[in-house]
Simulated assay, not measured.
Amino acid sequence: MKKDPFRLSPYEVQWLLVVGFAAVGYAVYLRYMAVEMSAVALACDAGSQTMLCKSRLVATYLFKNSVFGIAAIVIALLNLLRPSIVLITGAVIAAGLGIVLYNIALSGIAIGLLILGFARPAPATA
């Protein structure tokens, strides 16, 4: 029984583009409007209970513990073993958040593993 290699359909590629841009866009918003903006940092440290402060608190906890990068590597390794659109989507989200939110090294390795997941032998010609 011959197994066909994993290939993305055009709709899946469009889905990954939308999800990737959304993840990176949210990460840029979170980094520059919540984490690095001093007025927001002072307000949150003073005890403000807004949704932006809670998002800032969660994001800083996650990137200080390298959760984005580790999650991206684990999902990319799983995708390398058994590729699927669900794993690629999760890895793109985690790597996109990690690249922008200070987990650059681990997320870069995960992106390399995602690219390696698409490396497959050329189809045999008859």
Results as ranks from 00 to 15, higher is better:
Lys2Trp: 02
Lys2Asp: 01
Lys3Ala: 12
Lys3Pro: 00
Pro10Met: 06
Glu12Arg: 03
Gln14Phe: 15
Gln14His: 11
Trp15Pro: 01
Leu16Ile: 15
Leu16Met: 11
Ala22Glu: 03
Gly25Thr: 11
Tyr29Gly: 10
Ala34Thr: 07
Ser38Met: 09
Ala41Trp: 03
Leu42Asn: 08
Asp45Glu: 05
Gly47Tyr: 10
Gly47Ala: 03
Ser48Val: 12
Gln49Ile: 12
Ser55His: 05
Arg56Phe: 00
Leu57Tyr: 07
Ala59Val: 10
Thr60Gln: 09
Tyr61Lys: 11
Phe63Met: 10
Lys64Asn: 11
Asn65Leu: 12
Ser66Thr: 15
Val67Cys: 08
Ala71Cys: 10
Val74Asn: 04
Asn79Glu: 03
Asn79Arg: 11
Asn79Ile: 02
Leu80His: 12
Leu80Asn: 09
Leu81Gln: 14
Ser84Trp: 08
Ile88Asp: 13
Ile88Lys: 15
Val100His: 01
Leu101Trp: 07
Ile104Gln: 00
Ile104Thr: 14
Leu106Phe: 15
Gly108Lys: 01
Ile109Val: 14
Ile111Tyr: 05
Gly112Gln: 08
Ile115Phe: 10
Leu116Gln: 07
Ala119Met: 08
Arg120Met: 06
Pro121Tyr: 09
Ala122Ile: 02
Ala122Leu: 13
Pro123Leu: 10
Ala124Met: 12
Thr125Arg: 09
